[in-house]
Amino acid sequence: MIVELWILCAIGTAVIAAIRGGHSLRWLLIGCILGPVGVLGAIFMPSLKSKEPDVAAKRQIEIDELTKPLQGSDTKTVSAKSERQ
Rank of each mutant, 00 (worst) to 15 (best):
M1R: 14
M1V: 12
I2Y: 12
V3T: 15
V3S: 13
V3I: 15
W6V: 13
W6G: 09
I7M: 10
I7V: 12
L8N: 10
L8H: 10
L8T: 09
C9Q: 06
A10E: 05
A10L: 03
T13F: 05
T13C: 08
T13Y: 05
A14S: 08
A14I: 06
A14N: 07
V15T: 08
V15S: 07
V15D: 05
I16C: 02
I16A: 03
I16R: 01
I16N: 01
A17E: 03
A18W: 07
R20V: 01
R20G: 04
R20F: 04
G21L: 00
G21C: 03
H23W: 09
H23K: 10
H23L: 11
S24F: 11
R26T: 12
W27N: 05
W27P: 01
L28M: 09
L28T: 01
L29Y: 07
L29Q: 06
L29I: 09
L29D: 04
I30E: 00
I30N: 00
G31Y: 01
G31V: 03
G31A: 04
G31D: 04
C32K: 08
L34R: 07
G35A: 05
G35S: 02
P36C: 03
P36G: 03
V37Q: 07
V37T: 09
V39D: 00
L40T: 06
G41L: 09
G41N: 08
I43N: 04
F44A: 08
F44W: 09
M45G: 03
P46R: 07
S47H: 04
S47N: 09
S47W: 03
L48D: 00
K49Y: 05
S50Q: 00
E52D: 09
E52M: 03
P53F: 00
D54H: 04
D54V: 02
D54K: 02
V55A: 03
V55Q: 00
V55M: 00
A56W: 01
K58M: 06
K58F: 02
R59Q: 02
Q60G: 05
Q60Y: 06
Q60L: 08
I61A: 10
E62Y: 09
I63E: 06
D64T: 08
E65H: 10
L66I: 13
T67N: 11
T67I: 12
K68D: 10
K68H: 12
K68A: 11
P69T: 06
P69Y: 06
L70V: 10
L70R: 07
L70W: 10
L70I: 10
Q71S: 12
S73I: 13
S73R: 13
D74H: 11
T75S: 14
K76H: 12
T77I: 14
T77G: 13
V78Y: 14
V78A: 13
V78L: 15
S79N: 11
A80N: 15
A80R: 14
K81M: 14
S82L: 15
S82Y: 13
S82G: 15
E83A: 15
E83D: 15
E83C: 13
E83T: 15
R84T: 13
R84W: 15
R84A: 15
Q85K: 14
Q85L: 14
